[in-house]
Design a protein around this nucleic acid. Structure first.
Length: 894
RNA sequence: GGGGAAAUAGCUCAGCUGGUAGAGCACCUGCUUUGCAAGCAGGGGGUCAGGGGUUCGAAUCCCCUUUUCUCCA
């Protein structure tokens, strides 16, 4: 039986050595240059530009094995993994590709050759499907493919017609598309699987899909044949391994068995027995699958976190951890121990795994520990809820309780159900889902910011090259957007709010973290037209000027004068250039781990998110400010050049946002060097389409005003520049000024003066304590004894309640049996305390004794049997209250 | 971006409808004891995260700030 490594190699050798393909390494499973894609989920991801014609392929026939993850997005297989024999979150897709080179005949012939000759698969077990055609959509039946299949020797009755869903492939609503032909493998004992093709049975499974890209879908839905035709194929690696090993489950091959062994070793559980309905075996499959996903995703630069793909990874890790805990009996972190096995197994095919496996292991272990801590807390919380449920004579844990466990403490519903079962309870899942829906609704209502999502009608491109220059320009009105619809006829009348579209603009549309411009768009000739722009946004290549027409009318074709608000713009520019310097400053001061995670630049501030796992110290903040301000005062030139992406990536010191998609050519902004050649790693060099100062001096002054955490491992700092920074400093100085006036000292002496005050307060407190103690001792000595109980009543020097309480303890200790009432005059308040030793419990309660006393001094109070406290306002009546206290003591004790 | 929680001794946490801050582990001292988390007795250790408010009285109730966890987008 061939090993999985051999099978992978045989596939690649067949195409590369025998049929002239070039091997291409898999693209990262975390797509760095495509923010629309959570994870690489198909072999074609990295070749998309070739099919779209936006890039020219270096080779026209290539073969590869692509690392894929399907989880969290549109193709979400996460919840199925482990329950069957063939769903995975991570898998390899073997593919051979033709970019305008060979087409159907070679693709089909070679596929058949590889399967039946190289791998000797029984022809009687192979079925193929071809596209049946679709009259409504105007696509013909793929007779060409069917004829080729017949010619290579597919058995009669083994060629099936498939519908548009199964056998026609489209990238999107428009663009390249074409029919595909699939190869299926029949596992039935009597080879009766013909009717099960595409029937969703695991008895007949698809092993290879060949897509023939031959049409372009136009915007009007019509199809035109492509000049260059492409072949895009994908074979599920784990499946073909199962087939070639005569196994019915992907998990029974050596793709997974070494991981199972590692799991067994790490968890000390019973060995894997390949049963479908056994919780232990499900756990084995889940963990083996998930550790592959985690190891590859983390290796390719993903992190575990709370946003987007980071969050998907977190869920995957927790799912695996949970199965380990619940079904394999683990009690500590164990997933991280499996990383070396994955690296060893796949490190040859994917050398990137060997780059830094220790870091991957640490990331996994850290998150495991964090989750297990949560889980322990969750178990405790659940027990409380379970008790509450039982006390209420219920057997059903309420949906709101289950949801609270999930929402607040991250305890998944499955875990709650499992725990409930152990307690003989069930969980109201319907109520849980309802609570979840309500929570989602609340979240939706929260963020109500107006965003243009989609606009009906075609949006013309706007030429916004003028946005970097300060001059006003003229442009022609092309149309406007109202209610998410592009309008090109009629007029905009006074008072209307629209998104104005022009053929060119100097307004900056919100992009790359920089806010859109505000300003005015007027018709200077007629004098009567004034359009107030409140926000500028981009939608693709179109710039929308949102605002209100204050006066006059606007129609398509009108020539307008565009004037972005100059003062606001310059404030934004100051902040943007400062952001670049801050980016470099953070990295210099805090270390190389600092990566930009997002930014927001507007006229009031710059806000910057970056990877860093702890709060910044005051000293670090000052160092960063000093770093930036030093470069401000040197008045360094700011230069922007546009370079081809490949060239730009090589500029020394260049920084780009991880995961961001950049245009080619890309604009490069440098602070300091005037040409890319002069740049080095100490300079700020960033890919950036924003507006900047001509030199750093104009920033004036840079001051960090706030820092906060955003997510695990991500922090945010907010800073101000220019006149806002000046205002901040003025206010700070004013605050210090009031203090120096009060203390009559220099600002730098303030800490010492406050420290001295602190000490003085402490000293006085000590004095007060001693004074109180002395008074209490005096009262105790002169206290009368009634029936063995000391009656200690009197007025103390003004001290805090805490001080007096300490004295109460002393009196109780000394007197064994005591009836104590103390009062003192604090000026605006007259506190009173009553304390009784426990032996008096039957005779009197402090809380009741104090009430009439409090009434005398115009207050109220209460407390427990042995201690009570009250407060009044009438200090003059204090002696009266104390006299009353003595009276009551006599009454109670005699 | 929007919600939900948490912060108490070195660590893990308890502290009910407001009324003198506790436990276990760790630490120190002494005694006992050659044995796998040793036993007994005693002891030290707290700005109840910070600030404001309500109250006669706040760890406890309310608001703000800081930090951490968590869910949704």
């Amino acid at each position: 039986m061939p090993s999985s490594s051999e099978i992978r190699q045989q596939f690649l050798d067949f195409f590369c050595q025998k049929h002239g393909h070039t091997f291409v390494a898999s693209s990262p499973v975390v797509p760095l240059d495509d923010p629309t894609l959570l994870f690489a989920n198909a072999g074609m991801n990295q070749f998309k530009p070739y099919f779209l014609g936006t890039q020219k392929p270096p080779q026209t026939r290539v073969a590869n094995t692509q690392k894929c993850i399907r989880a969290g997005g549109k193709h979400n297989d996460l919840d199925d993994v482990g329950l069957d024999t063939y769903h995975h979150t991570f898998f390899e897709m073997l593919g051979n590709w033709s970019f305008g080179d060979y087409f159907k005949k070679d693709a089909i012939t070679w596929a058949w050759e590889l399967l039946t000759e190289v791998w000797q698969i029984d022809k009687t077990r192979l079925h193929v499907t071809v596209f049946e055609g679709d009259e409504a959509a105007g696509i013909p039946r793929d007779d060409e493919a069917a004829d080729i299949w017949k010619a290579v020797g597919v058995l009669p009755g083994h060629i099936h017609l498939g519908n548009k869903k199964d056998n026609f492939w489209e990238m999107g609503d428009t663009g390249p598309c074409g029919p595909c032909t699939e190869i299926h493998y029949d596992r039935t004992a009597d080879k009766s699987g013909a009717k099960l093709v595409n029937g969703g049975s695991d008895q007949v499974i698809e092993i290879w899909n060949n897509v023939f890209i031959q049409f372009n879908r136009n915007a009007d839905k019509s199809l035109t044949p492509l000049p260059a035709k492409h072949v895009d194929t994908g074979m599920g690696f784990e499946r073909i391994c199962a087939v070639l090993n005569g196994k019915t489950s992907n998990y029974d091959t050596d793709v997974f068995t070494p991981i199972f062994e590692a799991i067994q070793k790490a968890t000390d559980a019973e060995p894997y027995t390949a049963k479908m309905d056994d919780l232990k075996d499900i756990a084995y499959r889940v963990i083996a699958d998930h550790i592959r996903t985690l190891t590859f995703a983390l290796t390719d630069g993903a992190v575990i976190g709370n946003l987007g793909r980071d969050y998907v990874l977190k869920r995957i890790l927790r799912r695996a951890e949970r199965y380990g805990r619940q079904c394999l009996g683990t009690d500590g972190p164990f997933l991280h121990k499996l990383v070396p096995t994955v690296v060893e197994q796949l490190g040859t095919a994917f050398p990137e795994l060997k780059r830094n496996p220790e870091k991957v292991r640490e990331q996994i272990r850290d998150e495991e520990v964090a989750f297990l801590r949560n889980l322990d807390r969750g178990i405790k919380l659940f027990m409380k809820i379970a008790d509450k449920t039982k006390v209420a004579t219920g057997t059903v844990v309420s949906g709101t309780d289950a949801f609270e466990l999930y929402d607040t403490y991250g305890i998944y519903i499955d875990i709650t159900q499992q725990m409930a079962k152990e307690q003989g309870l069930t969980v109201d899942v319907t109520g849980y889902e309802k609570a979840m829906e309500e929570a989602k609704e609340r979240a939706r209502k929260g963020g109500k910011k107006f965003v243009v999502a989609a606009v009906k009608g075609e949006l013309p491109k706007t030429d916004d090259a003028a946005k970097f220059a300060p001059e006003t320009i003229e442009a022609k009105v092309v149309g406007w957007v109202v209610d998410n619809t592009m309008v090109t006829t009629g007029k905009v009348t006074a008072g209307e709010k629209v998104g104005l579209v022009l053929d060119r603009t100097n307004f900056y549309g919100e992009q790359g973290g920089q806010v859109g411009d505000t300003g005015t768009i007027d018709d200077l000739r007629t004098q009567g037209v004034e359009f107030q722009v409140e926000d500028t946004q981009r939608l693709g290549d179109t710039v929308l000027h949102f605002g209100t027409l204050l006066d006059g009318e606007i129609a398509v074709g009108d020539t307008m004068t565009l004037a972005p608000s100059p003062l606001r713009r310059i404030d934004v520019m100051r902040n943007h250039t400062a952001t670049h310097l801050m980016n470099l400053g953070l990295r210099t001061v805090l270390g190389g781990h600092v990566e930009q995670k997002g930014s927001l630049v507007d006229e009031a501030k710059t806000r910057f998110d970056f990877s860093h796992d702890k709060p910044l110290t005051g000293d670090e903040v000052r160092q960063i400010e000093a770093y930036v301000n030093q470069r401000v005062s040197r008045d360094l030139p700011v230069t922007a050049v546009t370079l081809p992406l490949e060239q730009a990536k090589k500029v020394d010191g260049v920084r780009a946002v991880f995961g961001e998609k950049y245009p080619d050519p890309v604009r490069v902004v440098m602070v300091g060097p005037e040409t890319p050649e002069k740049a080095n790693h100490d300079d700020s060099v960033e890919f950036c389409g924003g507006t900047h100062m001509l030199s750093t001096g104009g920033i004036g002054y840079f001051k960090i005003t706030a820092q906060e955490p955003v997510a695990k491992g991500v922090r945010r700092v907010t800073a101000v520049t220019g006149r806002v920074a000046a205002e901040t400093m003025t206010q700070l100085a004013a605050t210090v000024g009031t203090l120096t006036d009060r203390f009559q000292c220099k600002p730098e002496e303030l800490p010492t003066r406050v420290g001295a005050l602190d000490q003085e307060i402490q000293r006085l407190n000590e004095q007060l304590k001693r004074a109180v103690a002395m008074t209490v001792d005096g009262l105790l000595e002169s206290a009368p004894t009634i029936n063995g109980t000391k009656v200690v009543v009197g007025q103390l020097p003004p001290a805090g309640v805490d001080v007096v309480r300490q004295q109460l303890d002393r009196v109780k200790q000394k007197a064994k049996s005591a009836f104590i009432v103390f009062g003192w005059d604090e000026g605006d308040k007259v506190p009173l305390v009553v304390a009784l030793t426990p032996d008096l419990a039957k005779k009197a309660k402090a809380g009741e004794v104090i009430k009439p006393l409090a009434a005398i001094i115009g207050g109220k109070g209460g407390g427990k049997p042995d201690f009570a406290q009250a407060g009044g306002t009438d200090a003059g009546k204090l002696p009266e209250a104390l006299a009353k206290a003595k009276e009551m003591a006599t009454q109670v004790l005699e």
